[in-house]
Simulated scan of single mutants.
Amino acid sequence: MFAIVETGGKQFRVEEGRSLKVAKLDVQAGSELTLDKILLVGTGADVKIGQPFVDGAAVQCEVVEHGRDKKIIIFKKKRRKDYRRTQGHRQDYTTLKVKSIQA
């Protein structure tokens, strides 16, 4: 069984037992979390599509850890104008492990 979940303004395809990195959530590591914005739930050919969300569907997750992603570098340059700007960014994330999917 799989589901399409919306969290942090992004959509993720989740399955039972899998882990995923989402934008940082304000939840303690080791605690349980229920995601209720389910856009699609299905197994093979049996698929339920929400309008916009599937009623009664939920995904139970365990919060594994919080962390920071690798650094990305933003570099801007305009040739022959002596213009260079460098900026770095590290995104905070939360790792979730999917326990179960209720449809």
Results as ranks from 00 to 15, higher is better:
V47M: 06
K77M: 15
V22A: 04
E6K: 10
I4C: 08
V47C: 02
Q51H: 02
G9F: 05
K24F: 15
L25R: 03
L39D: 01
E16M: 06
D92V: 00
Y83S: 10
S100K: 08
D55E: 07
V14A: 04
K10H: 12
T7R: 12
Q28K: 14
T7I: 10
V5N: 02
T7F: 12
L33S: 02
V22H: 07
Q60K: 08
Q102Y: 05
C61R: 09
R90I: 00
F2M: 06
R68E: 10
K97M: 07
R80S: 13
T95Q: 03
L25S: 02
A103R: 10
K71E: 15
R68Y: 14
Q87M: 14
R79M: 01
H66M: 08
E65T: 04
R85P: 02
V59G: 02
R18F: 06
A3T: 03
V54K: 05
E16Q: 12
L35A: 12
T95D: 02
V41A: 15
E32I: 08
T43V: 07
M1K: 03
L20A: 12
V47T: 00
G67C: 07
A23F: 10
K10A: 14
E6F: 04
V64H: 04
E62F: 04
T95I: 11
D46H: 09
T94H: 02
T7G: 14
R18D: 10
V64L: 09
V22C: 06
F53P: 05
I101L: 09
I38C: 12
D26C: 08
Q91W: 00
V59L: 00
P52T: 00
D36V: 04
Q87R: 15
R84A: 11
I72P: 03
K48G: 02
V47R: 11
V54D: 01
R84M: 10
H89G: 09
I38H: 12
E16F: 03
P52D: 00
F2A: 04
K77H: 15
K97C: 04
Q91L: 09
Y83D: 09
K76V: 08
F12C: 13
K10E: 15
L39H: 03
D46G: 07
A58Y: 00
T86R: 15
K37V: 00
A29R: 02
K97L: 01
K76D: 15
R13K: 15
S31Q: 13
A58V: 01
M1E: 03
Y93T: 10
L35S: 08
D69F: 00
K97H: 07
R68H: 13
T94I: 05
L39E: 02
G56D: 09
T95N: 02
T34F: 07
T34W: 08
L25Q: 01
